[in-house]
């Protein structure tokens, strides 16, 4: 069955955008292979001792949760040159993007919130 608009695109497209390995590891798209390894090991150590700052990371599209599995997955993605090149294309947008965009920002509908009360339903 098709799902409503708000939930259909989020887990696939929006989550994929936030989970870009460059954002997870807090690296620039033109970083070297050694920098990927260093950043990954550092984050895994931080998560091991449960440092507060390690649990979340910021992206131009909002904050994302981080755990050891996600860090290892990001490192694996960036070790593969072809997959890394693909992620580079998307991560390059981050530097140029505007502020965070939230999928659940309420659109101004111009509704009448007292309607249900006015008609005796509340």
């Amino acid at each position: 069955m098709l799902e409503p608009a708000s939930t259909w695109s989020e887990p696939s497209a929006h989550a994929r955008l936030i989970d870009n390995p460059f954002y997870v590891l807090e690296l620039a798209p033109d970083c070297s292979r050694a920098e990927v390894e260093r950043a990954g090991q550092k984050l895994l150590a931080m998560l091991e001792v449960d440092l507060a700052g390690a649990r979340r990371y910021s992206t131009p599209f909002g904050e994302g949760p981080r755990d050891a599995a996600k860090v290892r997955e990001a490192m694996a993605e960036l070790r593969d040159p072809q997959r890394r090149l693909f992620h580079e294309l998307w991560a390059a947008t981050g530097a140029r993007g505007g502020g965070p965009v939230h999928a659940d920002d309420p659109a101004p509908t111009g509704g009448f919130s007292a309607a249900l009360c006015a008609l005796g339903w509340r």
Binding site: S6, S9, H14, G62, W90, T93, R96, G97, A103
Partner: peptide, 15 residues
């Protein structure tokens, strides 16, 4: 770059 930004923003908004 403008296209990638516009595309990223669109999928972040969802609609």
């Amino acid at each position: 770059s403008a296209l990638l930004v516009a595309h990223s923003e669109a999928i972040a908004k969802g609609k």
